[in-house]
Design a protein around this nucleic acid. Structure first.
Lengths: 209, 209
DNA sequence: ACCTGAACACCGTTCAAGT
DNA sequence: ACCTGAACACCGTTCAAGT
């Protein structure tokens, strides 16, 4: 007759799901596996999450918030400097933090920009929150006009690189670290100084002002 | 008594799967849906592919080969020029071709560097084949020593950008085309001229010579 | 108020049986 | 030689029933 207290929590469920995701992959994140890990039966999960897709979206959303905090911390760890030096270092710190996150939670990171079906919108929203510090740093680096484009370029590189890394795409030898820092340094230097080489720009396809 | 001729083919199966993938997403690529589309029953599929994972791997592998052909064609469409101008334009042509492919087959492109379980190795191999023209062009642009890193940087950017685009990550307004070409132009200009800014490089974490 | 067993539809896969 | 129906294990999900 007495109302029974909850035997688990939404947070515990999300944590369990994330552990399974990182350890065994997305297919292993079944309702049965998650339920067992938190000590309840599968049907009870539906009291805490709408369905499996909702669970995954919440998982990725939580990870995005966690990432945002780490990116903000990385940006804050760089002292302000006069001239363009500060923003450049800040961007490097942010991209390094992104990569650190992706290496710690590779499968979660791979889901940050993935098509998870109809519920994808919520993930995109969470990712946008996480991208805020990137846009801020990009604005300081490349100027307010190019801030959005610069942030997209930096995010695309960091995300693309780490997701390739996670998929095991770098097996031809060489040093992935070197490639990552080459990319970041090239982008930071180019986005800072302003216009890229006009000859190259001219060969981009027309109609893209 | 007479041996019955095959009612379908592996190619037809892969094409059917790809159509469903692009139209309705990965979850919709069920054995039942593919079988129905080629006019057989689900169990018969197992005569042509090992299992669902094998089907997906073959699908992505075929797409990677198709992509490779388009990248080679894009590279060949740029005439040789003396000096660094030729390689730069070639790299732009290749990255444009990659983006065109990703826009035509967004969900397939998203799978090119994805973790599809134990069979992922085959996908990575196919992607490596597709990356060959990129490495070649990167070598001409950045020199043989930095060819591999430069190719990784360019591929990471192109893949990361298009996968974000596919996921609908660019909703803050602005022009994605502009951002894409800004990224490509920045990378091409920076990778061509050689060393990125030393001050920025110095802030990369140590031990990555 | 929260959890569960039972049940349903669906999916991937196997295999003996059909032609 | 290729295809199929029947069957199995598993999965996501619902819901009436339990405490």
């Amino acid at each position: 007759m007495s109302p029974t207290p909850a035997r688990t929590s939404r947070d515990a469920i999300l944590a369990a799901a994330r552990t399974i995701l990182e350890r065994d992959g997305l297919d292993a994140v079944t309702m049965a596996a998650v339920a067992e890990r938190v000590g309840i039966r599968p049907p009870s999960l539906y009291r805490h999450v709408r369905d499996r897709a909702g669970l995954l979206v919440a998982l990725v959303g939580g990870a995005a918030d966690e990432l945002r905090i780490e990116l903000v911390a990385a940006a804050a760890s760089i002292e302000d400097l006069p001239g363009p030096e500060g923003p450049a270092r800040r961007v490097v710190a942010i991209t390094d933090a992104y990569r650190a996150f992706a290496r710690r939670s590779p499968r979660t990171a791979a889901l940050l920009f993935s098509d998870l079906g109809p519920a994808t919108a919520a993930i995109v929203e969470a990712s946008a929150r996480a991208a805020a510090p990137v846009v801020e740093a990009a604005a300081a680096l490349a100027g307010p006009e190019r801030a959005l484009s610069a942030a997209r370029v930096l995010t695309a590189f960091a995300h693309g690189f780490t997701s390739m890394e996670v998929a095991g795409a770098f097996r031809l030898g060489g040093d992935p670290d070197e490639a990552y820092h080459l990319g970041v340094a090239t982008l930071v230097a180019g986005l800072r100084t302003g216009r890229p080489d006009p000859a190259v720009r001219a060969s981009a396809r027309p109609g893209t002002r």
